[in-house]
Every structure is written in structure tokens, then in C-alpha cells.
Nucleic acid binder design. Sequence first.
RNA 1: GCGUCGGUGGUAGAGUGGUCAAUUACAACAGACUGUAAAUCUGUCGCCUUCGGGCUACGAAGGUUCGAAUCCUUCCCGACGCA
Length: 292
Amino acid sequence: MQKVIVILGQTAAGKSDLAVKIAKKINGEIISADSRQVYKNLNIGSGKITKKEMEGVPHHLLDVANPKIKFTVVKYQKLAISAMADIVKRGKTPIICGGTGFYIDAVTKGIIFPEVPPNIKLRKQLVTKSAITLFLTLKKLDPQRAKTIDAKNKVRLIRAVEIAKALGKVPKETEARLPFNFIKIGLYLPTAKLKNKIEKRLLTRIKMGMLNEAKKLHKQGLSWKRMEELGLEYRFMALYLQNKINKKEMLEKLNSEIHKYAKRQKTWFKRDKEITWFDASKLKTYVIINVL
RNA sequence: GCGUCGGUGGUAGAGUGGUCAAUUACAACAGACUGUAAAUCUGUCGCCUUCGGGCUACGAAGGUUCGAAUCCUUCCCGACGCA
């Protein structure tokens, strides 16, 4: 079975570097698994790899979407699968690299999503309702799904109602493993080191002109509201540029929010027992190569 | 030295006689995750617990009271004002 290497882990763990090194050693091509790097012009703030850092290794699924329009897991899944097929056809090894756990699972576990595309009109209407109302609506439509859903999470409730309205009920979660042998490599840093790296990286990004990037995005028509929605760097830069917070608050908030995000990533990946973990601060590339 | 205001859990900051282990926010920790996933949401957060409850706590020591973080006295510390 065709081998596909997956490099995952928390933000700032050093995944991109490792992916490039491995790609060069084994004649691979990289498929990014990052829900923000898919967008064009979200470069510094999303930590997108630069042309130079790619060292000639082809990267896929970067800059494939317009930031004004919401990208989705399903789009990612489709694009990633065809990228994998394409890479394999050319006799190379795909290397999936990124920190968006949901995207990675969509591909590696072959999650089958209900074929109900987002219904913007319906969502607009549902957003105005309270969580309790949404929950009761769902319960009427699909008592089974209501049993396990997080009754306080409006985003989840809205999607469930959306599916239930279209299909009558929410189909049972199913997976269909793709004919690939996914080898999952997890990269982690001890908490203190991670925190330190996040702080340093943030200052570097500011120096690199991250704020100008945000200003430019807004000039190009990206609304503040949408920018806030993009989270982390973009969210707090948007707040700062609107004078809703000052620079100090922006930096402080960002550090703690990025740290929280890293925690969420850790929680997500913890469930996946197929991952082999390595301490990024002690890692030698050849160790990984041997594992592969 | 005199006077005023204040000292509350990791931090900020409510509470001014019982319903207070103490609102809330932040931090911290744990978790969820079916087309927004850097999003969205949940739980724990003095100590012990057989999860019923038990114990110690609101600067310190005394006191008043059936009962005090809350009132009184003294002391310690801080800010400000007057000397």
C-alpha cells in the first residue's frame, strides 16, 4: 500500500522544517494541513512557509482559497485526496504536514461527511436563535442526534439542524479508510519551551510586518468582522487596528490565546493512538527516517 | 507623630452580621469536536472525601454575638494628607 507520511503537532513545534527535510531525503512532496494557510495573502500571520524555506520541495494546498470566503473541511478533504493521488502518480511520496487536526482526520480516517452543503440563508436565520431553542428544534427533528450533541454549542447545533432539515436526520458518523498507509509522526515541545517559542515567534512576525499584512488585507476588502473570525493573529490584529485594544493588550492576548490553541491541538491529537511522538527539541531527522 | 482610606483565594477585584469556600474577570488545568475547526463549546479551579459531606480560611491577635470576611480593640503592612 502506498505510504503517506503525516507530520502533525502543536503550533510552533517545528513541523514545516522537518517536513522539508524528510521530503528532500525521500523524494516527497508536501501537502499542507492548515486551515488558515489555505487562504491567499494570509502569510506572516498564519506562519506560512516561504518560497526560500521550501528549498525547492513542492507544497500543495497553500493559497488555494479566497480569505473572504469560508473554506471547509470537505473542500480540504477533496483537494488533499486529489493532491495525494497526483503525487503518487508521479512516483513521489506525499507528506501531509500541519496542525489542523480535523483536516488531518478527514483525510487519514476518511470521514464521510453528510452531503449537505452549508446553507447560508438558513444559518443566518438560525444564528439569531438561542442554544436552547436550537437544541429543541434538533430534538424534534432528530432525537438521536440530540442525545449526543453538545447542547450549548450553537455552531454544532446549527449544523446539525441544517443536516436534519435536509436529510430528515443526521446520518451516523462513518469512515472509509483510503487505500493509503498513513504514518503519523507527532512533534511536541515541552510546555515551557513551547511557550517561549510562541512568544519569540510572535515578536518576529511583528517585525516581519504582520500588521502591514493585516492592513493590506483590509484594504483589499477583507472586512474586520471576517478578519476577527479568522482567529488568533488576525483576530487580535483586527481588534488592534480598529482601536478596540491597544498594542500591549494585543500582544498579551495573543500569547495566551496561541497557548490555549496549542492546548486544544494537544487535546485533539491525544486521542489518536496511531501517532508516534517525538520531542522536537531533541529531534534528529535521521531518527525519523529510521522510523519510516 | 497625627489623620484618612485600605489589606479578600495564583492575580485583579466584588462582598460590609447569617442564604459565603466567598459574585465576576484573568491566569492555570482537564475535556468535547459529523462541511466555521486558529473556529465553536464544556468542566475543574482552598484542603480532604466512600461525593453524602468533613476541615481550615478573607493581614495578625484578642473581643462582641446564637452566628463575623463583614462590628469593636490593639498590633503589623501599604497609599495618601497634615506635621
